[in-house]
Computed example of a mutant assay.
Amino acid sequence: MIKARVTVTLKNGVLDPQGKAIVGALDSLGFEGVNSVRQGKVFDVELDTKDKAQAESHLKAMCDKLLANTVIEDYSVEIA
């Protein structure tokens, strides 16, 4: 079994309204000096294979087809 972590983040230049809301909330909670926050998603995936190359290929296909909107998001795959 292979365990992997997929991290999906907005591309640079894409507006992040949730990030702005988080900055405002942090400020109202007394956390001053936070200039910006970019939010994203993390997926922990377990694959029933021992072939790292095959796992990486499947994970990239998953990201391209479902986990990430590649028009506005970037993703990275880390195999444990």
Rank of each mutant, 00 (worst) to 15 (best):
V34E: 05
E56L: 11
R38L: 05
E46N: 08
K52S: 13
E32Y: 15
K11V: 04
N12Q: 15
L29C: 15
Y75G: 01
L66P: 10
I72W: 03
D48V: 08
M62E: 01
E56I: 04
L15S: 10
K52H: 14
L66A: 09
A4L: 07
A21T: 09
L29I: 11
E78N: 14
S36E: 15
Y75I: 12
S76F: 03
V37S: 00
T9N: 09
F43S: 02
R5Q: 10
E78I: 15
K11L: 00
T70M: 06
E46Y: 04
T9Q: 10
S57T: 12
T70R: 14
D48S: 12
G30P: 00
T7C: 07
K11E: 09
F31C: 11
S28K: 15
A80E: 15
V34G: 01
K41G: 09
D27M: 06
A68I: 00
K3F: 04
G30T: 02
E56N: 11
V23I: 05
T70W: 04
D16V: 03
K52A: 05
C63A: 13
H58E: 10
Q39A: 14
R5P: 01
D44I: 07
Q18V: 05
I2G: 06
D48H: 14
T70P: 01
A25N: 09
I22A: 06
E56T: 13
V34D: 02
L67V: 02
V23G: 00
Q39F: 13
V71G: 07
G24E: 11
S28T: 12
V14P: 03
